Simulated assay, not measured.
Amino acid sequence: MKHQVATLRLPAGSKSAGAELFTQSWLPDGPAKALIILVHGYDEHSGRYQYFAEHCTGKGYAVYTLDHWGHGKSAGINGFIPAFSVYHDGVDALIASLPTETANLPKILVGHSLGGLISATYLLDKQDGFAAAILSGPAIKAADEPSAFLKFISGILSKIAPKLGVISLDANGVSRDPQVVADYLADPLVSGQKISARLGREMMVNMDLIQREAGKITLPLLMLHGGEDSLASPEGSSFLNKNIGSKIKQLKIYPDLYHEIFNEPEKEIVLNDMTDWLNQHISDNQPN
């Protein structure tokens, strides 16, 4: 496996134009058969996916990823985002930076948690660039659905106090493996910041968007979710499975697993399920 790190800048027109984002990639020792574009979740970073990358490169897949604006080693403010589109701009910039020799390889979009919401909404306009997509514990529906009043208040706070921290995440919901939780809490690139009023509002708006327009997604889609996920409701993945327009789709809910299914004790089963599904479906569904 070959590992590379780099940086890129968000393009002109982005709400954070010129901001520098940290990127990294893991490449198999031999020729790659496809590229995975990995989109991580809230208050984490690409470096937490080393084991994921080792598994995927061992199966012949190259993995390209970035730290979102406001995350990890990238520029930005922890817990905040000026607009949700900045996340999409980062994915655009990452794909634009791919080596030219990989241009004809199938691309697979893989998003976890907030990254699942970023990925799902990204697909509404950009799915033609991918052979398939995988969503892991996507934040399509909140564990506790906000009331209409809360949505109204969030809209006001997003305008008058956009950086105010309003939502905390319980690290104990990350994994049943206590070492994973301890490592997460001790990670200097995990800020521990609350989700800001602006980011919370942007997430609600984009959850509503994907729930309204899920039928536009038609590419092969695999949804993976922990049945005991307390941070992103499994109902979100079930909703997508029922409402997307894809002819090739599969939903797998792992009954006892928590939020980070790629970091649970059963992670090898989950990762094999993922790459087995990819091996079955990407060859006949490569975009032009």
Score class of each variant (00 low, 15 high):
N272E: 15
K159G: 06
R48M: 05
A19M: 13
V39M: 03
L219I: 15
K141T: 09
I77T: 14
I156D: 00
D183T: 01
L105P: 08
A93L: 04
A148P: 00
L169V: 11
L10P: 04
I248R: 14
I81G: 01
T100G: 14
K159W: 04
A32H: 11
G111S: 10
S158R: 14
L209E: 10
I210W: 05
D170T: 07
N288T: 08
F80W: 06
P234M: 02
Q211T: 10
A53T: 06
I253E: 14
K2F: 09
W277I: 12
L157D: 01
K15H: 15
M204F: 03
P234N: 01
A17N: 07
Y51G: 12
P287I: 05
T275V: 06
S14G: 08
A62N: 02
P220N: 12
Y184S: 04
L185H: 06
F84N: 01
W26G: 03
L38W: 06
E20Q: 12
N241A: 12
A161E: 09
N104M: 13
K126T: 04
Q211E: 13
A182P: 08
Q127C: 03
A197H: 09
H259I: 13
H68N: 11
I134V: 15
I37Q: 10
D29G: 00
M1W: 04
L114S: 03
K126E: 10
S113L: 02
S237V: 11
M203E: 01
I95R: 14
R176P: 03
S16R: 13
E268Q: 13
G76W: 06
A161L: 15
E235R: 13
S97D: 15
G165I: 02
S237N: 08
S119A: 15
A139Q: 05
F80A: 06
S168T: 12
S85D: 11
L221G: 04
K151T: 00
V110W: 09
S85F: 00
F262Y: 12
S74W: 07
T65F: 08
A133T: 13
S113Y: 00
E20N: 01
G41L: 07
G72D: 07
